[in-house]
C-alpha cells in the first residue's frame, strides 16, 4: 500500500516533466495535423457523418445516405469523400467529434440520433447540418417547429407510424384489447414513441402495457414480465436499447405464444408477424436528397424538417401461421408490401 506522503517542502516541476512533455507533444501533433485535416487538394466534395452509437438504425441510415447520394449522381470516392465517425455511446467523445467537424469544415455534416443532434445544436453554427434518425427534432432543441428552425440545421424525422400500426392491429386481430411494449425511460426517443403509441392505442379503444427496461441485461426479464401480463400482441416501439435486443424479445414472446408486431424492418426476418417500418434506409436517402438541395445553393433555413418519405409494410407468413393469424386480403393490396420468406 502506498505510504502516506511525506510533507515535502521542495516544489519542483521535475516529477511532472514526463506528463507535461506528453501533453505538449500530443497537442503539438494535433496542431500540426490541423492544417492537413480538411484541406486536401482534390476536387472531391467532403461530407462527414457523425453517429452516437452502433445500432441497426445507424447502419441502415448511413447506408441510405450513401445510396441516396448515388441515386442523385454523387458517387462515393469519385465525387465526394465521406468521413464516418461513431462515438460508440461515449458522450465526451461525441463532443470531440463535433469539434473535429468544426476543424474539418465538411461541406455537409450528416448526423444521426438525438444526442448527436443536441450536441450539434450547441456546437455547430457555421456548417450545414442534416440530421436523420431523430424522432422529435423540436424536442431536441433544433427549432420551435418543423418550419421555424435553426438556420443551419434541417433533416429527417423518423417518428414511427403508430396510427398505421394500430390500424393494422385492429384489422388483423379484431378481438385484441391489450397491447404491450418494452420501452427505455432513459431515452427521450423511446418515451416519446411510447406516448405516441399509447395515445393512438387509446383512441382505438386499446390498452397499452408499457414495461420499462434500463439496460440490455434487463431486456430478457422485462420481456418475461410483459409476457406474463398476457397482452394480445406486443407492438415493440423503436429505441436504441430494445432494437438492439429485438431478437430475444421476439423469441421470448414466441415461447409465450404472443405475436410481436414491430417497427424496424429487420425484425420481420427475426420472426415479427408484421412490421410497419419507417424505412431507415430511406431516411438516409431522404437526408441525402436534402443535402443535394443545400449543395445546389438552397439555405437549410428555408428547408423545413420532413418525415421520412416511405413506410414499408412487412409480413412474415410463417410466423403468422405459427400464431394462427390470417392476413386479410386487403393487406396484399398494399403497394409497399414486402413478404418475408
Amino acid at each position: 500500500m502506498k505510504q502516506s506522503p511525506a510533507v515535502s517542502a521542495r516544489t519542483s516541476i521535475r516529477p511532472l516533466l514526463k506528463m507535461l512533455v506528453i501533453i505538449v507533444a500530443i497537442s503539438a501533433a494535433l496542431l500540426l495535423t490541423d492544417r492537413f485535416s480538411g484541406r486536401d487538394n482534390s476536387t472531391r466534395k467532403r461530407f462527414s457523418l457523425i453517429q452516437y452509437n452502433d445500432s441497426p438504425l445507424s447502419e441502415l441510415s448511413g447506408q441510405g445516405i450513401v445510396d441516396g447520394l448515388a441515386s442523385l449522381g454523387l458517387v462515393k470516392g469519385k465525387d465526394y469523400d465521406l468521413d464516418v465517425a461513431n462515438a460508440q455511446g461515449d458522450i465526451a467523445t461525441l463532443n470531440l467529434m463535433l469539434d473535429e467537424a468544426v476543424n474539418d469544415r465538411p461541406e455537409i455534416l450528416f448526423i444521426s440520433s438525438t444526442p448527436t443532434l443536441q450536441a450539434a445544436v450547441k456546437k455547430i453554427s457555421a456548417l450545414p447540418v442534416i440530421f436523420t434518425v431523430v424522432a422529435d427534432p423540436v424536442l431536441a432543441g433544433a427549432g420551435s417547429s418543423f418550419k421555424d428552425h435553426l438556420p443551419n440545421i434541417t433533416g429527417i424525422s423518423t417518428l414511427g407510424d403508430y396510427e398505421g400500426m394500430i390500424r393494422w392491429v385492429k384489422i388483423i386481430l379484431p378481438h385484441a384489447r391489450l397491447i404491450g411494449t418494452l420501452f427505455s425511460p432513459g431515452e427521450s426517443n423511446s418515451v416519446k414513441n411510447m406516448n405516441v403509441l399509447k395515445i393512438s392505442a387509446e383512441q382505438a379503444g386499446l390498452e397499452l402495457i408499457a414495461v420499462p427496461v434500463n439496460s440490455s441485461q434487463e431486456v430478457t426479464d422485462a420481456a418475461f414480465s410483459l409476457a406474463s401480463r398476457r397482452p394480445d400482441v406486443i407492438c415493440q416501439i423503436v429505441d436504441n436499447l430494445t432494437s438492439a435486443s429485438a431478437g430475444s424479445i421476439i423469441r421470448i414472446a414466441r415461447d409465450q405464444k404472443i405475436p410481436v408486431f414491430g417497427f424496424v424492418s429487420d425484425q420481420s426476418k427475426a420472426g415479427a408477424v408484421l412490421v410497419v417500418s419507417r424505412d431507415y434506409h430511406q431516411a438516409g436517402a431522404d437526408a441525402a436528397r436534402l443535402a443535394k438541395r443545400v449543395l445546389d445553393g438552397e439555405s437549410p433555413a428555408k428547408i423545413p424538417f420532413e418525415f421520412v418519405s416511405k413506410t414499408d409494410l412487412l409480413i412474415n407468413p410463417s410466423a403468422a401461421a405459427f400464431f394462427r393469424i390470417h392476413f386479410p386480403k386487403e393487406i396484399f393490396l398494399q403497394k409497399d408490401l414486402i413478404i418475408t420468406k
Partner: peptide
C-alpha cells in the same frame, strides 16, 4: 488527447 489523436487519424469508426 489520445482519443482526439485517434479521431484525427480518421480510421474505421468501429476501431475507435
Amino acid at each position: 488527447l489520445l482519443v482526439a489523436v485517434a479521431l484525427r487519424l480518421g480510421m474505421n469508426p468501429n476501431d475507435l
